[in-house]
């Protein structure tokens, strides 16, 4: 019933609709777009270095003659996947750890929060720097895991403290008296009531992950050349943004569009889940 009602409300929500359409278009662009361009992202055009956008190279070329259009779309494929997966992992983990710690209390709480605090004090950047070289050659999914692993702790603390107050609500007690298992109560009553927080967190995490990935790539971890991501492209393009704006404008513009679409969907989802709003 709930999923049906929420889906109905989501589809009726204008923001979510626009956000969804935008996201679908961006994904389509990232995956179908390369077939429309004349160049492959690995091609190098030795006749055009740093040429501005024209009919041949739609979005211009790089300093080594790569076609910006092809390269940017290639980068976006990576970024979309990384951003969405990191957000999903980080927010999901934050919600589960925080809610379990807050709901069960006692030693479960102590152990989980000890883990959270430990991760908080560890210098995440250093750890990623140490682990990254070992993962060279391994699947980029490991990179997602690493990024997510250091992005959830603060949220999970917030979730925990909110759970502490939700735990005392009568509807949570009512569920307990109905004989519903505790883990189900957490998933069904606690987490949905934190949805506003979690959705905001997840949307922030998407942009955070794309940009965080760029920062890491810049220092030589994460996505390594010749492979590209929006992050690496922006980092590179930013250095010459005034002289050769196309190197920067296209990846940055797409990142903004991506984050915007995700935010719209997030807002719509929040409204759809929030029974108080009238959509």
């Amino acid at each position: 019933m709930r999923s049906k009602v929420v889906l109905g409300r989501l589809l009726r929500n204008r923001q979510a609709r626009y956000g969804g359409i935008a996201l679908i278009l961006l994904i389509a662009l990232a995956y179908i777009g390369p077939y429309l361009g004349a160049y492959d992202w690995t091609d190098k055009d030795f006749l055009a270095f740093l040429s501005p956008p024209d009919a041949d190279h739609w979005w211009g070329t790089t300093s080594i003659g790569q076609d910006m259009y092809a390269v940017t779309l290639r980068g976006m494929q990576k970024s979309i996947v990384i951003g969405l997966l990191v957000a999903l992992f980080a927010t999901g983990l934050a919600a589960l750890v925080g809610a379990f710690a807050g709901y069960f209390g006692g030693w479960v709480d102590k152990v989980l929060m000890w883990g959270v605090d430990l991760l908080l004090v560890l210098p995440s950047f250093l750890i990623i720097a140490i682990i990254s070289p070992r993962l060279r050659g391994a699947s980029w999914l490991w990179f997602v895991v690493l990024l997510a692993a250091f992005a959830w702790m603060i949220t999970s603390r917030v979730v925990r403290s909110m759970t502490l107050s939700l735990r005392e609500r009568e509807y949570v007690q009512a569920a307990l008296y109905m004989g519903i298992p505790r883990w189900k109560i957490i998933l069904r009553h606690i987490v949905p009531n934190l949805s506003s927080l979690l959705i905001i967190d997840a949307t922030l995490n998407v942009s955070g992950a794309v940009i965080g990935e760029a920062a890491l790539s810049f220092f030589g971890f994460g996505i390594q050349p010749p492979d590209v991501s929006l992050g690496t492209l922006i980092a590179e393009g930013a250095r010459n943004a005034t002289g050769y704006p196309w190197l920067f404008a296209f990846p940055a513009g797409l990142l903004v569009l991506l984050v915007l679409a995700i935010n719209l969907i997030g807002d719509g989802l929040r409204d759809a889940l929030d029974p108080g709003s009238n959509t």
């Binding site: 709930r2 569920a175 949805s195 108080g276």
Partner: peptide, 18 residues
């Protein structure tokens, strides 16, 4: 006593499903 995020049908169905 009623979960604000659940439609009434789900609220009433909850003990039944459990």
């Amino acid at each position: 006593a009623l979960d604000p995020r659940m439609p009434v049908g789900d609220i009433i169905a909850e003990p039944l499903r459990a």
